[in-house]
Design a protein around this nucleic acid. Structure first.
Lengths: 339, 339
DNA sequence: GCGCAGTCGGGAACCGGTTCCATTGGACAA
DNA sequence: TTGTCCAATGGAACCGGTTCCCGACTGCGC
């Protein structure tokens, strides 16, 4: 209720001086400033961010567009973003992008266009050229996490080399019947992550002459998905792979559980590797390639802040590849002899 | 860039008429309205929500205060809230409340006070009397999910009867050595959920004369927490319980995994029940009491919207108990004979 | 024919900050 | 002493909508 005009009146100065005193911009004498500050705290003045935004054109608010919040990777990224934004004194407005095309359209055309946000972070979403254009035309920086989008800055791990590396690891252990359980290639809204991880596996297999036709099965990107896929793939002993490259740790964990269920020992009868660095990976002894989603979120915020800074408007788009860590646990070993 | 004044000029009317035509408030002739609408779409006019908020005092934005986004319950609630808010054409601004008291203070005093949000939903956070007062004094509706807070509307399941019911179920199966693995009673920011669930178990045990001193162990509220606690509690055969009431499904799943690890069969040697209705409960055959966090989120939004409606300002605070569903799966049965 | 109700539209004030511009007075150099 | 520079401050415009108030016009009842 109390506005800056009240503060000014109480301090016996003009609105403009009060504003300068509180914001620290422009010349104000030491004495006047402290008088204004006293007046402000006396009446419990809190500036209206709305009014400030209208006057300055800056909202100190970043929009985050994300397809899920209840999946490990996305939740972790979100935490990283949130924490970095709070530190920078920015708000975070969350838009969950549903599969529903009409809702997606509405979020871009209606919600993001209304000058509510200074910038947008898109997590795991492949923006269309039209969506990028419409955001760019508003002059808002955009950063994408999880894959490449033309014309914006992006941040991701190198999915193809990740899965290639893991496959090569299994090959080097002596495995010859390696299979990939990954996401559906045609799933909505992904950044072609599924396709790139599959391609990495196939690259590695082809390079060592191990290509075969039953090298892939599409499963849901979750523990139950990996479990179901694992049961399907492992239950026929004659065609059973000796090693599985999972598209993510959750799938890998599902596969390990399925193996337990079927009495298949991991790793002596089956090696399993994942990608992610999921919280549960350690508990299941899963060998994995850790990406650090929280760090990715924080890094994305830094990119945004750079571009929001006064000199930042002319920065080029960056395409950043984030580092991964290979963590060997007990889910991988050489294949069984009598293969 | 294009403001309503541009639309007005193009349509040959005044700003006020343009505003009336586009917002639908006040008298505008059919013909004028369509002329304004044509002009607006011609120049791609999108109203500035900032300016509109400043003029009306309404932001169409709801603040959500939540301690985690990477835990199942919280993520589900958040999804429910988000989806209901988008449908109501409201934005969602996310504030993650860290354990850090100073940051928490800052969120309440600095972020939430600046007229950025019309209402607040607090998930799983026990607001202090001071926090409630400061929000109430801004005239913003508040709804809490997950427990009771005086002076605001709240929404939760009845935790004590939930765990009492589950314990009674185990008792009715014949179990006499029942143990509760739940959350730390002194954990920050909870709604005393941990304490209430423990109390429910103890009530039930006391009612059947089964009280004993080793009836509880505090563990982390997660699968690894349940796993570690399970290993600790189950490894000594002489003191091993025949049934465990877990504080949540994640703990229960951890216990089941620990039992597998130790070669203890579930349910023939150990019965396990959880609370939640976690996505993984089905996969692990877990008997549980399902709460429906998404529905809770949606319901909270409805409460907020009721209070935000013109007639809603005088609504009383409500204390709503949400329904739960008892789902019996294969993790519970009668205790082993030779107990 | 007059008055009143109801429709339509314009002008201006307003929401609450920020910032440009002009003014003043003091310090300091010439 | 006079001119210049700069710190300090006030007044007013401005951001982009919304809404109050008022005047004009139409149609209708008396």
């Amino acid at each position: 209720m109390s506005a800056i005009a009240d503060v000014a009146r109480l301090a016996g100065v003009s609105k403009s001086t009060a504003s300068r005193a509180l914001s620290g911009h422009g010349y104000v004498s030491r004495e006047t400033r402290s008088r204004v500050e006293r007046a402000a705290s006396e009446i419990g003045y809190v500036p209206s961010s709305i009014a400030s935004s209208l006057a300055t054109g800056l909202t100190r608010n970043v929009g985050v567009v994300i397809p899920f919040v209840n999946r490990w990777f996305f939740a972790e990224v979100l935490e990283g973003i949130e924490s970095a934004l709070i530190t920078a004194e920015y708000d975070l407005t969350l838009y969950r992008l549903h599969d529903d095309a009409e809702r997606r359209q509405r979020i871009f055309d209606y919600f993001l266009a209304r000058k509510r946000v200074d910038a947008v972070i898109a997590v795991g979403i492949s923006l269309s050229a039209h969506e990028v254009r419409s955001l760019n035309s508003l002059g808002k920086p955009i950063v994408g996490i999880g894959g490449d989008v033309p014309a914006i800055s992006t941040l991701s791990i190198d999915d193809a080399s990740a899965s290639r590396f893991l496959t090569e690891h299994l090959v080097s252990l002596g495995h010859t019947r390696i299979m990939h359980l990954g996401g559906d290639q045609h799933e909505q809204m992904d950044f072609a992550v599924h396709a790139r991880r599959l391609a990495g596996v196939r690259d590695a297999l082809a390079a060592t002459g191990l290509s075969h036709s039953h090298d892939f099965r599409a499963v849901a990107y979750s523990i139950p998905g990996g479990y179901a896929g694992g049961l399907a793939v492992l239950s026929d002993p004659s065609h059973r792979p000796t090693a599985i490259v999972a598209g993510c740790d959750e799938i890998a964990i599902g596969v390990i559980l399925a193996a337990h269920e079927l009495g298949i020992d991991v790793p002596s009868q089956l090696s399993v590797v994942g990608i992610d660095g999921h919280v549960l990976a350690d508990m299941f002894g899963l060998t994995t390639l850790e990406q650090h989603p929280t760090t990715q979120g924080e890094r994305a915020v830094r990119l945004i802040m750079d571009r929001l800074s006064p000199e930042g408007s002319q920065l080029d788009n960056e395409r950043i590849t984030m580092p991964v860590d290979f963590i060997v646990r007990r889910s991988t070993t050489a294949p069984p002899r009598a293969s």
